[in-house]
Nucleic acid binder design. Structure first.
Lengths: 204, 204
DNA sequence: AGAGCTACCAAACAATTGTTTGAAACGCAA
DNA sequence: TTGCGTTTCAAACAATTGTTTGGTAGCTCT
């Protein structure tokens, strides 16, 4: 546990927001888990809503930016050609420097905002996801023969990211359809292959 | 508007549940929009939660089953070979017999349950989506050379459905990344192509 | 030591929200 | 018409929940 109560509140709050969603999360539960008084949330953040936004700004966005950094780092070590981009992207997402629970919270918060957008989504997209998408697009365009229209690259990047997101978002569905929890790397390999073939549409 | 108050409540409730989510929807708003008394929800359904489950059972599931029927119908008119399956699937989803708003509600309710699963998701999956997935799988396997392992087909079907779902779920993201609302059919064509290429992994 | 500031707390507050209650209105058969 | 079950209603209820209030402990600087 962090010593600083403010940081502790952010940590506990993110966990609960990710687990139960914004409205189903009670300020009382946050504060009791953080071992402090009910009024602390209002003192440090000025209300439940602002606490939520602070979680997005101070925890979610930095993490999204770190994923992008990780992607760039992977890019140097990955095979050349456009396939290397997919490789680097999947590594950044699935062998990220975060714990499994942390990644889970990260995806969960995004999924909730996609299902029910609020002003927080705007922050996530413009400050976190867009930079990642642009970086992917640039590195992909660099590895592509010249003349491929930017718009097509953009659409493909969007689908690539879609593969990694959907893989997580629809986890409960996979389980229902494939029966018992399938091995992680079998799924991962399949989704990556699927994405790689989709990429082929750009090169011909 | 339906004459029957019970049906009217289901209609209004589905719309609000889809727009605001379960907890953010107020029983008072449902009843006032349905033009009846607050107590009607408890009289006809026995509580807010049961009204929500009734919406899933009596509106969402039947619609999911109709999409499957539409898929089967399309299958006869679509080109032979595995590509025809993708064709039929996309038509069932995007040229469905429902209004745009109805499709929107349908997807929204699913997205919310995926982002925050409750017992309702279990109903949606087992009674609505699984039948569709199984039907797709069977028709795909029929059009595939024998010997392709069922598990691989299953994974591919899952990804195909993923393309159609993601296309909708992530709509706010597309807008942010592509700038101004892109033409519907451009997106549709791209996603379908992406899915078609992914399918190639099974045939060769 | 004492003023002043920050961090924290217990308790009260005000508003919202799902549910219940008891009665009125309605439809229909006897 | 009378009686009775069903449907609808206005009002009250009970519980929850975010926020505010007023005060206390701890710290620093003079």
């Amino acid at each position: 546990m962090e010593r600083d109560l403010r940081q502790r509140l952010l940590t506990v709050a993110e966990d609960l927001f990710a687990r139960r969603g914004y409205t189903e999360t009670r300020v009382r539960e946050i504060t009791s888990r953080a071992g402090c008084n009910l009024a602390a949330v209002n003192y440090h953040f000025g209300g439940k809503r602002n606490l939520y936004l602070a979680v997005i700004e101070e925890r979610w966005v930095p993490r999204a930016l770190r994923i992008r950094e990780e992607f760039v780092r992977n890019l140097h070590r990955s095979p050349s050609g456009p396939e290397g981009v997919v490789e680097a992207l999947f590594r950044a997402f699935f062998q990220s420097p975060f714990t499994e629970r942390e990644s889970w919270r990260h995806r969960r918060l995004l999924a909730q905002e996609l299902a029910q957008p609020t002003e927080a989504l705007e922050i996530m997209l413009s400050r976190g996801l867009r930079p990642l998408l642009e970086t992917i697009r640039e590195s992909l365009q660099d590895r592509l023969p010249p003349g491929v229209p930017e718009r097509r690259v953009r659409l493909t990047v969007f689908s690539l990211l879609g593969q990694t997101l959907y893989f997580h978002l629809a986890r409960p569905m996979i389980q229902n359809f494939l029966g018992e929890s399938p091995p992680e790397d079998e799924l991962l390999r399949h989704v990556k292959d699927f994405a790689l073939r989709g990429l082929k549409g750009l090169t011909g």
